[in-house]
Simulated assay, not measured.
Amino acid sequence: MVAQLLFLSEQRLIRLLNISDKLITKKKNCVQEITLDIANSLKLISKRCFPKVVQVTDRFHVQKLALDALQELRIKYRWKTMDA
C-alpha cells in the first residue's frame, strides 16, 4: 500500500500517518523490507509507519539510470570517433 503511493498531498500524508498509528505495533514490526522507487517522497512515510524496516531501491529504476548513462557515453564517444 505505501509503496504504491508516489505523490501525496499534505492531507493524504497526514491521513496515511494517522492510519499507520492505529495499526498494531506488533504487526508493523513484522514488515522487514519495503521496495521504493528512487524518489524520496516515500522514505519518510515508510520510516514513520514501519520503523524497523529496511528500505530497498527498486532495481528497475537503478538499471534504467545506469543504462541511460551508458547510452550517453556511447553516443558521446561515437560522435568523437566520427569527428576524428
Rank of each mutant, 00 (worst) to 15 (best):
L42V: 02
L17Q: 13
A69S: 11
T57S: 07
V31C: 14
Q11E: 12
L17F: 01
C49W: 01
A3E: 15
K26W: 03
A84M: 09
S9Y: 05
A84G: 10
A66K: 09
I75N: 13
L13I: 04
Y77E: 14
I34R: 01
L36V: 11
L67E: 10
R15M: 06
V53H: 02
R15G: 04
K26H: 06
W79T: 02
L8F: 03
R48D: 03
D37P: 00
K52D: 12
C49P: 01
R15T: 07
I19A: 11
K47Q: 14
K26L: 08
Q55W: 00
C49V: 10
I45A: 09
D37A: 06
L5H: 14
T25F: 00
E72W: 04
D37T: 08
A3M: 08
Q4D: 10
I45W: 00
A84T: 09
A66L: 11
K76Y: 15
R74S: 14
V31S: 08
V2A: 09
L23F: 15
R12T: 05
K43Q: 11
I14R: 14
T35L: 08
C49H: 03
K52F: 00
I24E: 09
A69Y: 04
T25M: 02
S41E: 12
I19L: 13
R74K: 13
R74G: 02
I14L: 07
E72N: 12
L16P: 00
L42R: 09
Q71I: 00
L42Y: 04
F50P: 04
V31E: 08
V62A: 04
I75A: 08
L17A: 04
L36I: 14
D37N: 11
D21Q: 12
L6D: 07
V2K: 06
I24T: 07
R48H: 09
L70A: 15
